[in-house]
Structures are given as C-alpha cells and as structure tokens.
Nucleic acid binder design. Structure first.
Lengths: 161, 161
DNA sequence: CATAATTAGTTCAATCTTGAACAAATCACA
DNA sequence: TGTGATTTGTTCAAGATTGAACTAATTATG
C-alpha cells in the first residue's frame, strides 16, 4: 500500500550520498541515546543528569554558565536541573568569593560515586556499539566528526541564551 | 580555578579512544540538529514536524504506527503532533477501508510544497557541513554508522510503546 | 463460533525543555 | 567615580515529550 513518490525531476534528497550518510549518523546516534537512557534509568538518572554530573566530575568547580556552554543548553535549563541534583545530595553549589554572581559546582562524595557508575554505564554502551569498528575505523570516525564540528563552529550558529 | 580530577587508578572514560570518538559523534549531531532547527524555524516547522512530513512525502499512505517505528518515537507522540499538522492543512488522515483501526497518512498539496522546501533546507545543512569530508570519507562515515546501527539492532533495545 | 490475546490509535497527567523577562553583580571607560 | 553595557543566574509560562491506561478493531486458537 505504501509507495514511494516518484522523483519529479532530479534526485530526491535521500538519494544524495552526503544526505544518506548523514541520516545514518542521526539514526545511530538516536538509537544509542535511547539505549543509554534505558541503561541509566536503573541508577535513577537520565542522560541530562549524567551529562551534568560527568562534566562536574571532570571539571570540578566550573560555573553554571561554563557548564551550559559545554552542554550546549540554555542557562535556564541548569537552573531547573541543578537544584534537583543538589537536593538529592549529589552536588554542591558554592558561590564564588571573587565574583558574587557566580556559582561553582562540585560533586559530593555520593555524587562522585554515582557518577563513576554512570560513566561506566556510558562507557559500556559506547564500547559495546563501537566494537564493530576496528581501531583505525573508530579513529577515522572521530576525526571526521571533529572536523565537521570544527567546520560548523566557524559557520557560527545562534548562541544559546 | 576549574581543574581536572586526577585519574584514581586507570584511564578515565574520556581518555578511551572509543569513548572520545563517540562523544565527537554526539557533539556534531547535537550541533547539526540545532542548526537545522534554527533554519527550519522561518518555515514555521520544527525538526519533529519536518521528520514527519518528510516520511509521509517519501512513503505516502503509511500508517501512524509505521511512521512511529520509522521515527523511533511513541505512538502517543504522533497522536499529539498529527492533528496539528492536519489542522494546518499539511496532511490528511484517511482511515483504511480494510482495517478500521488504521489511519493512513497523505500530504496535501500545501504539505507537499512545504516538505519540498524543508527537505531542501535539510539537504542544505547537511551538504554544508559534509563538504569538509571527501566523497570517500563521507561514504566511509555512512558505512561505519550503518554497521553500528545494524549491530545495535541485534542488541535489541526496549521497543517504543 | 467464542473468547482471549494482540494491535492501532487516543487521552491524560507528569516531566522536560525552552525563551523571554528580570535582578544582581561586574565591567568598560569617559 | 559614575553611568551604561554586559554577564550570571533565576523565574515563569508556554510547548514538547513521554508512558500508562484506555477503547475499538482485528487476529489466534481452542
């Protein structure tokens, strides 16, 4: 019953190699995100939480604004999420002595422990899925994507609020 | 002020090549999605809408359920979105004569015209960003991602509702 | 055939995410 | 200094997304 609409004139977008190949990226990413979310759920954490925790784990003492830029989300998003993580005793927000506007972020002991678990989950998902690529292929993949990201950066899209 | 937490024992996850390289994929994808959304906005459409329209464009007459599986979203999601697109006169939902549960999806003339525009926008974003890769690299990228997707498929994550 | 199991789609309430408007603190610089 | 521009974080309301529960239609099976 379902039928492809015949190409009116030239190639349809999904027939263009660059298009097709990017769609493959989007699909794989979507599936991995869903998988990660599912495996994170038993730990009482969503990807958004994990991303926050992992960044504080790695860059202890960063500000909310730095975190927002790093995650490519709006500051308001963090203003909604961080109090929740704070209430759960996973993070602390200490205001900066030098600049009273700023709130710097730190993990509690419990937060650090949880983050180590969720990082392990994420690493598990990623290595599971990437085993299908050889080391060289995996490296090439990373190089391609970093070049694309760098290229887009010049292209300069609207800043997050 | 911000400081890396020193590795307690072995490598931290973000130092593992496979992990690092996948993060690059996630980042690039995130940036491209944002760019696409921004460029779609002037057409009064978000990615979610465009994805729906583009799939109906390509697979005219598919059912809501088929569409949901294709987009990897829940059926309820479409039950919220489709009436909106219908009200805007972009799509039609005709119930199937053979199976009265099913509603098949078709584009109106206006919907087809809009979809051709948004497909062009998407193709523009994708080719813009992919020009930094050679044809061969682009092809390799697609191959890698399709292999990953196929690998995950066996791995069989929880079905959408 | 009758009844149970399955499937397609909807509704609803709970969450998530976002941008605009805002307050406070800092900075630029005349 | 003083005044205007910028930056940081928050609030709030609107929109988007999700899963669970539900109805109606179809299929499987005894």
């Amino acid at each position: 019953m379902t039928q492809d609409t015949p190409a009116p004139t030239g190639l349809m977008p999904w027939e263009l190699p660059r298009f097709r190949n990017w769609i493959a990226v989007a699909r794989a990413h979507q599936i991995v995100e869903r998988t990660l979310n599912a495996r994170l759920a038993p730990h009482g954490v969503r990807i958004a939480h994990h991303d926050i925790l992992a960044n504080i784990y790695r860059f202890a003492g960063l500000t909310q604004n730095e975190l927002a830029q790093r995650l490519l989300v709006g500051r308001s998003n963090l203003s909604m999420l961080l109090p929740e993580l704070e209430k759960r005793g996973l993070i602390e927000r200490r205001s900066d002595a030098a600049d009273k506007r700023v709130r710097r972020l730190w993990l509690t002991e419990a937060g650090r422990a949880l983050t180590e678990q969720t990082l392990a989950v994420q690493a598990g998902v990623v290595t599971d899925m990437m085993t299908i690529l050889s080391d060289a292929e995996c490296q090439a993949l990373g190089d391609y994507m970093r070049r694309i990201t760098a290229g887009m950066a010049q292209w300069a899209e609207p800043d997050r609020v």
